[in-house]
Amino acid sequence: MLDEQAFIKDLLDPKTQNKAFQTLLSSYQKPLYNHIRNIVLNHDDADDVLQNTFLKVFQHLKNFKGESKLFSWLYRIATNEAITFLNAKAKRNGMTSENFQQKQIESLKADDYFEGDEIQLKLQEAIATLPEKQQLVFKMRYFEELKYEELSEILDTSVGALKSSYHYAVKKVEEYMIKH
């Protein structure tokens, strides 16, 4: 988006709002869906979180100061929504977030919207052994192929710290894949 300020203005103006929001949806629905799906794993949950994300974006657009890019603001909202959703669902099921994630991975085998083979399932298991932040960095870098600079803006972490976090994550995932 070349002129982000003008686009935000269109999103806030009732006359241009619908068309602008349609543009926002068509530009971001796929990358944000993938981002959320990588966190929550299940399609129905990803659909719920994606809807909540866009609803929140729409409701809070008037408070968007433009201090960060629209892109990173959207990713931040999506990340928070996905993590909050996961933690709440784990709590509702009386489980820790880690145990709930394990259960979600197990149910991937029977998921109609997962076409992964054994290696792909094992990779998900390996990722689940990482701390939450490392998981996020790994998924955003490896699956979503976001640049370190973009990651830095979204996660508010220095590029150096992200590089080292990703490096450790890759090492641990590789070790898991060899051992299991």
Partner: peptide, 24 residues
């Protein structure tokens, strides 16, 4: 490269925009 293996129902994104605009 190992892909995530996730897929979506057919026409999911085509319907999502419409659904979202109605909800908003």
């Amino acid at each position: 490269k190992i892909k995530s293996g996730f897929k979506t129902p057919e026409d999911y994104f085509e319907n999502f925009s419409e659904q979202m605009l109605t909800r908003i």
